[in-house]
Design a protein around this nucleic acid. Structure first.
Lengths: 225, 225
DNA sequence: TTTTTACATATTGTCGACAATCGGAGTTAA
DNA sequence: TTAACTCCGATTGTCGACAATATGTAAAAA
């Protein structure tokens, strides 16, 4: 589910959220054509609101539209993912740097608590890997919030970063990295607690580079097979 | 004008570009209400395409929409600008770092040529400051292109960064910084030529910090008066 | 057989009208 | 005088139908 799941509001917003969910979870395949009339009927609405939803999804980079031809779900190829992670590295690094000066002690303590619960979840193991993944997103989003920068929050939060969640669903099988990731998260929190923005930024950037490296290897293994 | 100004294509796209232009140049004031019916008639189209344009502009962060209430032009207050420059620093820094490894020698040479023409324009002085400003945007965009990262190009290019152009129009009067800015640009190009991504990133980030500082002071002077 | 052209079909783009909702003017009561 | 309430006008949200455009097929020419 999306961070906030309004099955209310305008029909266009409902369509946006339902489609975004379907796309992110892979329920609608990458590259699939999105037929306006068909979707409108499935959602029980006219084509007007649905078209607005498609425009919105285009802004989220979840679909690509071509005039007079139609909309298709984006294809997360290797290059796109690589580009995404470079942007993430830049933005989340900056968020971290600012958060080190802006977050309250209480918020940093909350981060520690969040990581504790992650650790428990990992110990219990078997449990959904997805949960950890979404929890990881939570960690990153909490830091974005800590930056007090609305634009960063938008870019790293629900509106713009559904692409990342989509990627997570696609690569959710590699659970082996949760261990090192957790430790890196802890290092980052300590840097925040010491109010060392420069260090926090560096650690976050390394963390994301590591995550990309892990995903990159996995994709290449897949493509070899 | 926009980098590409299609007065063709779908009506929604035309409306998007015309409105974006009017908003960026200040022809439509910040915070002004955008009446659908009125604009639709002014542009000689129905409300459907215009609504899609508003959605698109919302994605560009040029307008803010509230359900059942309507759309207003965003207000570029101090906090918003500050947030914008932090994001710019992160993204353009990253673009610079990558460009140092990805740009061809020919492209770097082109950058030098671009800066030469900027210098001439500044010498001729009186000439439009705007031209320099847009030229500056060119410089930054060329580097974004040099990163070969489509997402960075989108975020720093025409689609997402109209906000920045809007800011430029608002603060275009302070021409005194063109001198140091040019010198910093030259330093950046040299770092690129040496293929030193780390240095190029650092210089770009400082450059943008300096630009923000300059704008920040200017705004405070304005608000004092 | 291959290429090109013309056509038929499906899909997108656009419009005008109607329904739902919000903001404000005016009224009434405390 | 102030507060809350009610109603009305204006604006947004939605729908269905029609026009414009692209895609795929089949026939005709090379």
């Amino acid at each position: 589910m999306l961070p906030y799941t309004p099955e209310q509001g305008t029909l266009a917003d409902i369509a946006t959220h339902r489609l975004a969910h379907s796309i992110v979870t892979g329920e609608i395949a990458q590259g699939q054509k999105l037929n306006e009339a068909e979707l409108a009927e499935r959602f029980g609405m006219g084509r007007g609101p649905l078209r607005e939803a498609l425009r919105h999804l285009e802004g989220m980079r979840l679909v690509k539209r071509i005039p007079n031809v139609g909309a298709r779900v984006v294809i997360l190829d290797h290059k796109t993912l690589s580009d995404l992670y470079a942007v993430r590295e830049a933005l989340e690094g900056m968020a971290c740097r600012i958060a080190a000066t802006q977050m309250t002690d209480a918020e940093i303590e909350q981060l520690r608590t969040l990581l504790d619960s992650h650790e428990k979840q990992i110990r219990k193991q078997g449990g959904k890997v997805y949960a950890q993944k979404e929890g990881d997103l939570d960690f990153h989003y909490q830091i974005a919030r800590g930056s007090r920068n609305q634009m960063l929050m938008d870019l790293l939060g629900s509106e713009q970063y559904q692409l990342l969640r989509m990627c997570r669903y696609r690569t959710s099988r590699n659970a082996e990295r949760t261990g090192p990731a957790l430790q890196q998260h802890r290092q980052i929190v300590e840097a925040l607690a010491q109010r060392d923005g420069e260090l926090a930024e560096m650690l976050m950037r390394r963390h994301i580079q590591g995550a990309w490296q892990s995903i990159d290897e996995m994709i290449e293994k897949e493509e070899a097979a």
